[in-house]
Amino acid sequence: MNINNFRYDEVGLNRFFGPLEAKIMDILWEGSEKSIKEVQQQLEKEKATNFNTVMTVMNRLVEKKILEKRAEGRSSLFKPVKTKDEFIEEQSKKLTENLLDEFGGLVVNHMLDSLKEVDQSLLDRLEQKIDQLKKGKSK
C-alpha cells in the first residue's frame, strides 16, 4: 500500500489521509468490519455526512488497497487491510527510507539532533539497534 501524499503540516492520520478518509479509517480500526451505512451513521454523530460521499471514499480506499471489501447479502462489509499499528509502521518506514535515499547523512544528523528531549528507553533501543548493525557489518 502506497500513500503518495504525506502532509507535513498535518498531524496524526491526516498526514496520510484526507480528513474524511482519516475519520473512516479510525472508525474501521476500532473493531469489526462495517457497512457503509454503519460508518456513515457513526460519522453523522459528529457532522452530517452524505451516504454517497462515504461510499465513494470507502470504495477509493479499497482501490488504494487500504480497505478490503466483501459482499454480504445486498450490502458490502469493509475492513482495513492492516491494523493501525501495522499501517503506521509501514508508512513511517517508507518515509524514513525515502528521506535517507534522497538526503542521506543529513537526515540521520537531524534525527539525532531531535533525540535531545526524548525518553531514555528510546535512546536505549536506538543504541541496541546500532550495536546490532555494527555486529552485522563486521561479519
Rank of each mutant, 00 (worst) to 15 (best):
N2D: 11
I3T: 14
N4V: 09
F6E: 06
R7E: 12
Y8L: 11
E10S: 11
V11I: 10
V11S: 11
V11N: 07
G12S: 13
G12N: 12
L13C: 10
N14K: 15
N14C: 13
R15D: 00
F17T: 01
G18V: 00
P19W: 00
P19I: 00
A22D: 05
K23A: 01
I24A: 06
I24K: 04
I27G: 10
I27T: 14
I27P: 10
E30K: 13
S32N: 15
E33I: 05
E33L: 09
I36W: 01
I36A: 10
I36C: 11
K37I: 03
E38Q: 15
V39R: 00
Q40V: 03
Q40T: 10
Q41W: 08
Q41P: 09
L43F: 00
L43H: 00
K45Q: 09
K47L: 15
K47D: 15
K47H: 14
K47A: 12
T49M: 04
N50Y: 05
F51K: 03
T53N: 12
V54P: 02
V54A: 00
V54I: 01
T56W: 04
M58F: 02
N59V: 03
N59A: 04
V62F: 02
K65T: 13
I66S: 02
L67K: 03
K69I: 14
A71Q: 15
E72N: 09
E72K: 04
G73K: 01
S76R: 00
S76C: 08
S76H: 09
L77T: 02
F78Y: 05
F78E: 01
K79I: 04
K79T: 05
P80D: 09
V81R: 13
K82P: 06
K82F: 12
T83D: 04
T83P: 00
D85M: 08
I88R: 00
S92Y: 06
L95P: 04
E97K: 08
N98I: 10
L100T: 08
L100S: 07
L100R: 03
D101F: 01
E102P: 07
F103P: 02
F103S: 05
G105I: 08
L106Y: 13
L106G: 15
V108P: 02
N109D: 15
N109G: 14
N109T: 14
N109C: 13
M111T: 14
L112T: 12
D113V: 10
D113Q: 12
S114Y: 04
L115R: 03
K116W: 09
E117P: 06
L122K: 11
L123E: 11
L123N: 09
L126Q: 03
E127D: 14
Q128M: 14
I130D: 01
D131K: 15
Q132N: 15
L133V: 05
L133F: 06
K134C: 13
K134T: 14
K135C: 11
G136L: 15
G136Q: 15
K139L: 14
